[in-house]
Structures are given as structure tokens and as C-alpha cells.
Simulated scan of single mutants.
Amino acid sequence: MTGYLTTHVLDTARGCPAEGIKISLFRLEGDARSLVAETVTNDDGRTNSPILPAERFATGTYELVFHCGDYLRATGQAGADPLFLDAVPIRFGMSEAESHYHVPLLLSPYGYSTYRGS
């Protein structure tokens, strides 16, 4: 088995999955930041497939950017512009070539958290 990366977004303010959030994945090498993948969450707040599947997996430093502004506006949670949270970046490292990494976002209009899930 080779490693892979998954993610999902839960709206903790509303107590439900966050559908329709664009997610960008970047690989970081020194000062270089290169786009690896983009996807959108489905009705379960998940992506339809791993954002970084086994055949493209490589260890290293990555950044997931969750583009939450449109979702918060659509659900009436945005508040005034500029939004407190619009794009949420999560930078993390993956050092185990044979592991499943899961990096979720728990989102509310004024805060978020993450963890290494399973």
C-alpha cells in the first residue's frame, strides 16, 4: 500500500457537512509553492476521491487551502466584508510514505480547527 491524502469539511456552527467548498492542494519546496490538485466538497463535505491519490503521493510539506468565503456567504454566516475567514490555509508535513493522511477542517464563521484523522 502507498500513502494517500484525504480531507473533508464540517460546518461546526450548523452541525453539518460543508458542501461546495473549493479546496486547493499545494506542494512546498523551499520558497516554491506548486499547485498539485483542486477539488470541491460533495454533499457529505468530502471529496469524491483522495485529493492526493496513491499513484501521485510523495512525502513532503503541503498546504491545503480551503476557500470558505463563498460557502459562508451562501449559508448566511459571512458577516460584513472583509470576511474574518475567507481562505483557510493548513500547512502540514507527510513523512510516512505508506500512510493514509487525513486532514479535515472543522469550520465556523469565526474559527476553525484541524487534526490528523484516520
Rank of each mutant, 00 (worst) to 15 (best):
M1K: 13
T2W: 08
Y4Q: 07
L5R: 08
A13S: 11
A13P: 00
G15P: 04
P17H: 00
A18C: 10
G20M: 04
I21R: 08
S24T: 06
L25G: 00
L25P: 03
E29N: 08
D31Q: 14
A32T: 11
R33C: 03
S34K: 10
V36I: 15
A37H: 11
A37M: 01
T39D: 15
V40G: 02
T41G: 01
D43I: 14
R46K: 09
R46D: 05
N48F: 05
I51K: 00
L52F: 07
A54H: 11
R56M: 11
A58W: 11
T59G: 06
T59F: 02
G60T: 02
G60P: 03
T61N: 13
Y62E: 09
Y62N: 04
E63S: 06
E63P: 00
L64V: 06
V65P: 05
C68E: 01
C68Y: 01
D70C: 08
Y71E: 05
Y71L: 03
R73Y: 09
A74W: 07
G76L: 03
G76P: 06
Q77N: 07
P82E: 08
P82H: 04
F84A: 10
L85Y: 12
D86P: 01
V88D: 03
P89R: 04
I90L: 15
I90V: 15
R91M: 04
R91Q: 09
F92E: 07
G93R: 14
G93E: 14
M94N: 01
S95D: 13
E96C: 11
A97D: 15
H100W: 12
P109N: 11
G111E: 13
Y112G: 01
Y112M: 00
Y115D: 05
R116P: 03
R116C: 10
G117N: 14
